[in-house]
Amino acid sequence: MNPGGILTSLMDGLLIGVVYGIAAMGLTLIWGVMRVINLAHGAIISLGMFGVYLIFTNFGIHPYLALLLVALAGLLFGMLIYYITIARVINAPYLSTLLATFAINMIFIGLGTAVFTTTPRDAGFSLGNVSLGPVTLQGTRLVAALVTLLVTGGLYFFLYRTRPGKFVRAVANNRAAAELMGIPSARILALSFGIGTMLAAIAGGLIATFFSFNILSGDIYQQKSFIIGVLGGLGNPVGALLGGLILGALEGLLPLVMPNTWVPVIEFVLFIVILLVRPSGLLGGKSE
């Protein structure tokens, strides 16, 4: 394997890793704020894929503009899901929220399968290739990585520089205390769930610009989000981005030294080992 090839594999991995990172960020934000493991995450990612795909192929609207619409829809949709279901079980044992979100997953996947079937879809969208020395990269992936970094920056600005963002952090830190300070925790929880959902939808939308997919594809990214979540520390959005980069790098480089099919084995074993040794995550600060 020549160095250029290795570098290309690594860059490919890192670019996709950033997109994994944004999917994981949604999952980990929801966990951090309300201690809910959102098993509907994969279904939302799938819906994000279909959103961008359908808007682009049916109306000819540019995919990145479609992405904006999908993001907005994701935000509102997430808040709606929160008010209808999660709000009722947020204080129940964790099994209730796990099963509630899984039920939502079943409903979406069931509807999606009935409407869209499981035939693979491809947006057929391309921005050509970019060559930097020995490294050749797909334009769509490069843009996806840039969009992700932009969204991450935006999320940080929101969490640290705006009033509602500070409320989100306060509720994540200690909901009871936040309520005593007069923070409307119900609305903040809904907003957080909405943002988490929005991030999942954006991740799905971005993936749809360069990979083919079907309604079940989101599930794979949900699992990667879990792995990234424990890599970066559940509840830690920056950790999610770093975790995504690590996972992306592994996926870029491991196939050079072992058959492709062994890569997920390594990923899941890593997931188990980190959970056992450091449940707060490899990069996570506070221990559980």
């Binding site: 493991i37 084995v265 899941f268 188990i272």
Partner: peptide
């Protein structure tokens, strides 16, 4: 002994991991 140290949602998560690790391992 290893995974039952984890409580609550962490245990639920690790069992998903065990299932996927097993599936992908047997696939190879």
């Amino acid at each position: 002994k290893a995974i039952l140290k984890l409580r609550g949602a962490y245990f639920a998560l690790v069992t998903i991991g065990v299932n996927e690790a097993m599936r992908t391992f047997i696939s190879n």
